[in-house]
Amino acid sequence: MAKETTSDTTMESLAKGRSIGAFRCLNCFERVIPPAGAKTYKCPHCSFEWRVFWISPTFPRIRGPVWDVNRQLAAEEVRKQRKGGK
């Protein structure tokens, strides 16, 4: 019904699952929580390292990769995948 306002819409109910303070690692997609104010953060699950920007003191986001670290990790991983593929 157009007029009904009491019950949550689908999106309102989904919004309750938001998690400010965490972000997903952009390599392994695990949800991680960097320490407050950290400028870089190494993912404890996959070791990829990210440069972090803080939208607010409690809201971090990934600005970009730590280029040298991740390039090396990616090269190793791709080598391994290719070996495994054979």
Binding site: R18, L26, F53, I55, F59, I62, R63, G64
Partner: peptide, 21 residues
């Protein structure tokens, strides 16, 4: 929403952080 707060702070260039990374 997190995305709105991010956009409100640094605009749509924020997308670059995830895509180029």
């Amino acid at each position: 929403a997190k995305v709105s707060q991010t956009q409100g702070r640094i605009g749509t260039p924020f997308i670059w952080g995830a895509t180029n990374t």
